[in-house]
């Protein structure tokens, strides 16, 4: 019976495919019928936060930090309320990570401040003497890619109906207007809270340093 398959490669391949596809068909696909619904009150990421998420991805923070608090007392004591599915409804991609060389960050916005982050990203040892995390000084001079973040907001609004306002729309002009009215003021607030003049100056000149976007994102994780 099966032995017949080994002499007929086409049917063999079909057989293999059916067997391996079966698990996916049962296990994975049906979940997509029930869309992951956002929990009540969850807002989509602001464009600045999205730009920060891009920095988080670019410098690959998930290599060492998770964003998933498991439902154990030891975890909730350390990091806060355990994570719920609906909290991730706007996370494309998900950033749970798989390794905690550093602590979990899913609710880091609750117990760290922008100026703590500023010191920490500049020199981790200045706030955690035994830290083995590298300094990310380049984030203080690299400029965050706001345009790509804005493009992402436009895309998810269009394709996945993510509830953004009407001022998120395609085109360069719309972006420039949005940047001036929404992104830069938000960035300035963060930069000031980070208590570093160089960052404030950069934002005032219309350029948002990567670290400001990143901190906006980290502050959002609550």
């Amino acid at each position: 019976m099966f032995h017949w398959l080994e002499k007929h490669p086409f049917f063999f391949a079909v057989g293999v495919f059916v067997v391996i596809a079966y698990a996916g068909l049962i296990e994975v696909l049906p979940n997509f019928m029930e869309k992951a619904r956002p929990i009540k009150g969850l807002k989509p990421y602001t464009v600045l936060e999205l730009a920060g998420k891009e920095v988080y991805k670019k410098d690959n923070c998930i290599a060492c930090h998770s964003q998933l608090i498991r439902p154990f007392k030891a975890e909730t004591d350390r990091y806060g309320q355990y994570s719920m599915s609906g909290e991730y409804a706007y996370d494309r991609p998900f950033l749970w990570g798989s390794k905690r060389t550093g602590p979990d960050l899913h609710r880091v916005g609750r117990y760290r401040t922008p100026d703590w982050h500023a010191n920490h990203m500049w020199n981790p040892k200045s706030v955690v003497p035994d830290s083995i995390m590298p300094a990310y000084k380049h984030q203080f001079t690299n400029v965050a890619d706001l345009e790509t973040a804005y493009a992402e907001a436009v895309t998810v609004k269009k394709v996945f109906n993510t509830p953004y306002g009407d001022d998120i729309k395609p085109g360069k002009a719309a972006f420039e207007k949005y940047k001036k009215e929404k992104i830069l003021p938000e960035a300035l607030k963060i930069a000031k809270a980070m208590k570093r003049d160089d960052l404030v100056k950069m934002v005032e000149s219309g350029k948002v340093p990567e670290v400001v976007a990143l901190v906006a994102y980290l502050e959002r994780l609550k």
Partner: peptide, 30 residues
């Protein structure tokens, strides 16, 4: 959970039980 989702959940369980049961029987027969 909506009704449709419940319905799908039911079929999923049936499909799993039947599929896996069948696979086990075929495998041992083999």
């Amino acid at each position: 959970m909506s009704d449709v989702a419940m319905e799908i959940e039911k079929y999923r369980i049936y499909m799993f039980l039947i599929g896996t049961g069948l696979a086990v029987v075929i495998f041992y027969y083999y």
